[in-house]
């Protein structure tokens, strides 16, 4: 389970606003984060990953408290074991597909790399520079790399925003399949209602300031 009960001031186009989030996400869920632009979806993901520090509150992942303002606990992103897939995929241009995945491993595990390359259909591309990949291929590498560290929580920040409709459907299947395979509790930002209905087990809607509530994807 992930417990998030935090506050953080955000600078938006409407001035400074306070984002308040108080939710508990059960283990293995694939939760879609939904809300208008600037509502704080990415800010929330960054707070969970440790890239942003909340002003106050607590974040617990399983049994571990990764942030607690009252006890001055703030684990660095390196210590949280949270996978993060950025909108731009952030693949390392100086490394091949395989090197990107190997880099992510804590301890070298050749078999695990082979499994990931196979799972994400990257065997043929393993030695290719990431600069030469298509949008869909980049996404598969980014997913494989994020899973290489076996994260407890996977955060996907609009992973399908830059791909066309046809590719989108096949990549949605891959996200679904990898979520089922690796069983990481997943929070995914999406604006697409069809996509949410297809993938999410729950929906978290960020309203003007607060995370309003969990919703059933079919209720959107």
């Amino acid at each position: 389970m992930i417990q998030i009960d935090v506050e953080r001031k955000m600078l938006t186009t409407d001035g400074i606003r306070k984002l308040e989030v108080c939710v508990e996400i059960p283990q293995y869920e694939l939760v879609c984060l939904f809300g208008r632009s600037g509502a704080g979806k990415t800010t929330l993901l960054r707070m969970v990953s440790g890239l942003f520090k909340p002003d106050k509150g607590i974040i617990r992942i399983g049994d571990r408290i990764v942030f607690d303002s009252s006890r001055k606990i703030n684990l660095s992103p390196q210590k949280r074991n949270v996978g993060y897939m950025f909108q731009d995929f952030a693949l390392f241009p100086n490394m091949s597909v395989e090197e990107n995945i190997r880099f992510a491993q804590g301890e070298k595990d050749h078999k695990a790399v082979e499994n990931l390359l196979e799972t994400f259909q990257l065997i043929r591309l393993r030695n290719q520079s990431t600069l030469k990949l298509s949008g869909g291929q980049k996404q598969r590498v980014a997913l494989a790399r994020a899973f290489a560290r076996k994260p407890e929580v996977m955060l996907l920040d609009e992973p399908l925003s830059s791909v066309d409709m046809e590719l989108r459907l096949s990549l949605q299947n891959e996200i679904l399949a990898s979520h089922q395979l690796f069983q990481s509790t997943t929070i995914m930002v999406s604006h697409d209602k069809d996509e949410i209905k297809r993938l999410a087990t729950r929906v978290m809607r960020i309203g003007k300031e607060k995370v309003v509530a969990f919703e059933n994807p079919t209720d959107l």
Binding site: S49, G50, L51, S76, P77, Q78, K79, R80, N81, V82, G83, Y84, F86, Q87, D88, A90, F92, N94, F103, A104, G106, R145, A146, A148, R149
Partner: peptide, 23 residues
């Protein structure tokens, strides 16, 4: 360089030194 290169390396458990020299 995009900030995300540094940040993704941190979320992959890599230290600032490793990130600097390898990424």
């Amino acid at each position: 360089l995009p900030e995300s290169l540094r940040e993704v390396s941190y979320t992959l458990g890599k230290s600032k030194t490793t990130t600097f020299f390898r990424v």
